[in-house]
């Protein structure tokens, strides 16, 4: 059962730890360059996630038993490691992108490991179909990752990270409403730590001339991997529909619309606000539909079928007096 108080505790602790970790690292080194700040964000995010998931008590198993275990204990640490390496000045940009492509290509395979999709157990999923699905998913992840990184370079700002956090939060809620509570809850510490790191990095950048227009690629990178992982698990293991998952994965790309000449040269806060509004529109529609489906599904589970007795009679047969309300479900 969802525990809102526990969720709030997990989010607050993840956010505080991320922000404090980043501030502690900045305090140690006063002359922070762009590459250094980018790398410093990664330990903050990692520590925040570790604390957030500890508070959330997700009961992860080692060796990983299910897709969520693999996502949190293999995929996210690898993504953090790649972004940490990418921040070092000695690592060339093409080297970092090779690592990112490697992660994007293997991530669907890692998440589907030992499931019915790969074991041949499910006749609806022959090998060719699974392989095709994994290839398409990897390509989508890489596409979204590259486009958001390019936008971050072209037009840096916190709005891309905020848009990603908004999308991850909505993805978590939708996955929860689709019946996978634990999977949806995994989004919460991720959102909290990315938000806290974004805000703290922004504050640091504002105070330092050297990184005034800093572009922290690590935050959108980890955000995209996190978003993709949640949607992939919700779609393949939960009941999240493909359309919903695709809409949410592609929603952050709407930030690119602010690159049209009409909007591009406006004030940064205006551009940021436009981006958030553009991303929020499809997310609001998806959330509304998910809520409608959730309410519809919960009625028979809670024994609250409010239809008139005649409608129930027509569906299942018998007279109204013979049909008792569905109870204790």
């Amino acid at each position: 059962m969802p525990d809102p108080l526990l969720y709030v505790q997990a989010m607050v602790s993840a956010a505080c730890v991320s922000a404090l970790c980043l501030l502690a690292m900045v305090a140690k080194r006063r002359t922070a360059g762009e590459a250094w700040l980018n790398s410093a964000c990664v330990p903050g995010i990692g520590l925040g996630l570790a604390v957030g998931y500890y508070v959330l008590s997700l009961h992860l198993a080692w060796p990983p038993a299910n897709s969520l275990d693999r996502f949190l204990m293999i995929v996210l640490p690898v993504a953090l490691g790649i972004e940490l390496l990418a921040g070092f000045p000695c690592v060339p940009s093409w080297g970092a992108w090779c690592l990112r492509i490697g992660l994007a290509a293997t991530m669907p395979r890692i998440l589907l490991h030992s499931s019915v999709y790969l074991s041949g157990y499910d006749s609806d999923w022959p090998v060719w179909r699974t392989n095709a699905a994994m290839a398409v998913c990897a390509a989508l992840l890489m596409g979204v990752w590259a486009l958001l990184a390019l936008l971050s370079k072209r037009s840096p700002g916190v709005s891309i990270s905020f848009a990603l956090c908004l999308t991850i939060q909505c993805a978590g809620l939708t996955v929860m409403m689709a019946g996978y509570i634990k999977g949806g809850a995994a989004a919460l510490p991720l959102v909290a730590t990315l938000m806290a790191t974004t805000i703290t990095a922004r504050l640091i950048a504002k105070r330092s001339v050297a990184v005034a227009n800093c572009c922290t690629l690590a935050i959108p990178g980890i955000g995209v991997v996190g978003l993709f992982g949640l949607l992939f698990i919700g779609c393949f293991f939960g009941r999240l529909s493909t359309g919903t998952a695709l809409t949410m994965l592609l929603a952050p790309l709407l930030c690119w619309l602010t690159e049209i000449p009409l909007l591009r040269h406006r004030q940064p806060w205006q551009v940021g606000s436009f981006r958030l509004v553009l991303v929020a529109v499809p997310l609001a529609v998806v959330l509304g539909l998910a809520k409608r489906d959730f309410d519809r599904d919960m009625v028979p589970l809670l024994g609250m079928d409010l239809r008139p007795p005649s409608a129930i009679t027509a569906q299942v047969g018998g007279t109204p007096s013979e049909i008792q309300p569905i109870a204790l479900r």
């Binding site: 299910n66 969520l68 019915v116 019946g179 509570i181 028979p300 569905i326 479900r329």
Partner: peptide, 21 residues
């Protein structure tokens, strides 16, 4: 004997039928 509940039980929070068939 309740389709909605059966579908819920197949989810990863319970039997996780896609992972553990």
């Amino acid at each position: 004997a309740n389709k909605a509940r059966d579908e819920h039980l197949r989810q990863p929070d319970y039997f996780d039928t896609k992972q553990f068939p």
